[in-house]
Amino acid sequence: MGVFFLVYALTLPVAYWSANISLYHDGEEVADGVGTEFTFTASSGTTLKAYRKTYLSASAESSDDDSIVHYPVVYLGGTGVNMYGNIHRVKNFLYPTLTSIDAPIAFDVFTFSYRGFLPNDSFVPNERNIIDDSEALWNYAKSLYPEIVRPLLFAHSLGTGPASALLEKLGGSDEGPACTGLAMPYSSMAQCISELGYYTPMVFLYLIDSWRSTSRVKNMHPDVPLAILSAAHDELIAPHHQTTIFENANAKYKKLLYSPVADHNDLYTPIYRNLDTYLEFMDSCIARAEVS
């Protein structure tokens, strides 16, 4: 018995390292000049690098700067995607609105690399500090705009975990988001890992960050509009996770945008197969972003 516990204790560090690498593996994207790097300070005092890019509507491209209304967007990406990849992927959320709206508007997107992701790879990621860092980015972005403007909150895959935590924490006041879009969210990380492992016994499952998103969206403010993207051929997060999040979310206005042909990284198809619903949701986002 003593030998068993000794082996078990010696295995724990390896198991913890393996779990973290599996959950928080970095992407290989590099800066390409499409955005602007900046820094913000987390609640722990850590300075983190982040990225910003502005996307213009069709009418804004031919308008003078003073007539363009800017809306901040905080985007939390998935694992395997650093901030350089995030800045491209968020356009999947925004492009249909930018091409269809008549008003001269701009979405100013703020995103960052989680700790352990380039160029913030000198820090160790975990659930608590990713949530705290995401909130710090949120506060930074919000501080750059008048108090009459609420930022929009979008997230994909792993990023739907901290986004759900922000929904619970920020509430529906002027501190909270104008709306939230969650692409391929998960009910909990333990459930995801169990399904990917075909429910084989995993002694070290408790070492993986819990990310209990279902319980968090139950506590979101009902006034925050919510859209959930879901893909039938998602090889990482099964569609029933999105249904669970949708059914449990405490939002008066919520939409499930489902595609029977999309996969985990396909954000376009769930939107275009439900384009009218998506545009209606984005109208509610823009309307609520302007605090009366």
Rank of each mutant, 00 (worst) to 15 (best):
M184S: 14
S113K: 09
T46A: 14
T97Y: 14
A251W: 05
S67Q: 11
V109C: 01
N265V: 09
D108W: 05
K252G: 11
D133T: 10
P185K: 13
Y140V: 04
F4Y: 15
L10W: 10
P177I: 13
A60N: 04
A289V: 09
Q191V: 06
H156Q: 10
H240P: 00
W211D: 01
L23D: 06
R150Q: 11
P146F: 14
A19D: 05
V3E: 15
T79L: 06
M184F: 14
V224Y: 09
S113Q: 05
L207Y: 06
G161M: 00
S59P: 01
H70P: 01
I237P: 06
L196I: 14
D234F: 04
P151K: 03
V90I: 05
S67Y: 04
H88V: 02
R216Q: 15
E29F: 13
I148H: 12
A9L: 15
P260F: 08
L182A: 11
D102S: 14
E37Q: 14
K142S: 13
K252W: 07
N82H: 02
Y114Q: 07
Y278E: 03
F246A: 14
E135P: 00
S18E: 08
E37F: 02
H233S: 05
N92I: 08
P104R: 00
Y84H: 04
D234M: 10
P270E: 12
N265Y: 09
S62R: 12
K169C: 07
Y84N: 03
A155S: 11
I237D: 00
S259Q: 11
P260D: 04
A141Y: 04
F107P: 00
E235R: 12
P185G: 04
I87M: 08
I208C: 05
T160P: 03
E37K: 09
T46N: 13
Y55D: 04
Q191M: 04
K254F: 01
I148E: 12
F5R: 09
H156I: 03
G85D: 07
P177R: 10
V30T: 06
E195Q: 14
P185Q: 12
V217T: 05
Y278V: 00
Y51H: 10
P125W: 01
S259C: 08
S113P: 08
G181P: 01
P13T: 09
L205I: 13
V14D: 04
V90K: 08
R288K: 13
D108V: 02
G85C: 07
L167C: 07
R115E: 06
W17E: 04
V81F: 03
L94P: 02
S122H: 10
Y95A: 15
N126M: 04
D121R: 09
V261Y: 13
A50M: 01
L98T: 08
H240D: 14
N274F: 03
E280A: 15
H70D: 08
A42I: 13
W138G: 00
S215K: 14
D133G: 11
S134K: 07
L196N: 10
S188M: 08
K169I: 10
G197V: 05
T36R: 06
T269A: 13
E175H: 08
H241W: 01
Y75F: 15
D283R: 11
S122A: 11
P260M: 10
A9G: 12
I105H: 02
F110V: 01
L153A: 00
M189Q: 11
R288V: 05
P104D: 02
Y145G: 07
R216L: 15
